[in-house]
Amino acid sequence: MDKTNKLFFGTNMVLLTQNEEERYAFNANMNNARNLSHILKAIHFKDTATVFVTENGMKVTVEDAKCIQANAFIQAQVFQDYIIREDSITFCINLDILQECLSIFGSNPPSVTAMRMMYNGYGTPLVITLEEDGAVTGCSIKTQEPDQTLDFEFSAANVINKVIMKAECLKEAFNELDVTSEVLQITMSPDHPFFRLSTFGTLGQSHHDIPNTSDMVEFFECNQTQSNRYRLSLLKPSVKAVNLATKVCVRMDHRGFLSLQYMIKNENGQICFVEYYCCPDEELENNDNQF
């Protein structure tokens, strides 16, 4: 606590000396904090996030009910300076607090907040310094014991069906899903209906089809008809991601596990990815079941 206090209130708090900077195991800076907060918004459906830092970049993971996992990847290139002095760093952090800190000066353009992020290893707080128009904010967020994150064993080799489309068309479909339905059924097939989202609500069934010939579809590779149900409450958070994304890749593996990859552009035009994994709700008795 002593050190952070010095950082906040020392007379020279803005400019850390070279020595002080070197002490940190992880030290990165970004000229626009929104580049980070924007992408974290896409996975912000639970308070606690696990952060993994390696020399390639930062991965932030959020999980719920051991059934859904969201990962945001922020490559080292998105930062202007990126120094890590250990092979990898893992810690848990309260995402609500992190987001509030990153947007402390307000999150609306045209204001641009510069950010520096520092972490000094197990048990120490994450220290963030933000600067805008001469005002400087120092934040010290307690980190927590990292949680074991789930491994969905989702590998590209087992992917059966894969569709890449523009985010707009899923945006519409996701935002209008019938919330009274408990599940969302996703059907992917080499023949009609190609790509179908179905809900079964109190007011009846609803199907949303996207044919493979649609302008929105950029890549379509379905080998086998698959129809799986996913808890709508689990998939709902990914609406946040689809609203920010430009492209979406939907994949299903042989077990019916779903992977949704969102491509999100930041204000500097760099591309970041957010990935959602979700396990199917139940196995349908007959996998070829057609509605």
Partner: peptide, 11 residues
């Protein structure tokens, strides 16, 4: 308990 945030204005 979880966080300390301080914004400083100068001059």
């Amino acid at each position: 308990e979880l966080v300390t945030v301080a914004t400083r204005f100068q001059n």
